[in-house]
């Protein structure tokens, strides 16, 4: 391994971890429900990197059998992450839909305000159906 690949490997790991922690932090620290979802997406994206980057082999080609090529990149992580991305989109879409409905029902999507509104009307059934 030469210096560049070594640094590359570290840099990718650092990028992965940074996204992971930053995303998680946003989810925990923000009370705004949309921002939380943004953080969640960041967090999920870090996983895509976690899977994809080690699968990349410098100089490797796409895994199409050809007598001229000897080094292939591992195709499996790409397939897996394709699935994960679909799941991520589904989650984000559902999350945002819920936020829209919450905004309709409560008039806000700030968590602390929602808690306050439910607390003020404790016991009363808010009908949203």
């Amino acid at each position: 391994m030469n210096l560049i690949t070594g640094l590359m490997a570290d840099a990718t790991n650092i990028a992965t971890i940074f996204l992971m922690v930053a995303g998680l932090y946003v989810v925990i620290a923000r009370g705004n429900m949309v921002k939380k979802l943004v953080g969640l997406s960041l967090f999920q994206s870090s996983v895509y990197l976690l899977y994809l980057l080690p699968g990349k082999i410098l100089g490797g080609s796409a895994p199409i059998l050809d007598p001229k090529l000897t080094v292939y990149a591992n195709p499996l992580p790409h397939v897996l992450i394709l699935t994960a991305i679909v799941v991520g989109i589904g989650t984000l879409a559902l999350g945002l839909t819920l936020v829209v409905r919450i905004k309709e029902a409560y008039g806000t999507f700030e968590e602390d305000e929602i808690i306050a509104r439910d607390g003020a009307k404790a016991g009363e059934q808010g009908d949203v159906a």
């Binding site: 429900m33 819920l98 919450i102 808010g126 949203v128």
Partner: peptide, 11 residues
């Protein structure tokens, strides 16, 4: 769920 809190719970 019927209650609007169902939305928050789901979120």
């Amino acid at each position: 769920g019927r209650d609007r809190r169902a939305l928050v719970a789901a979120y």
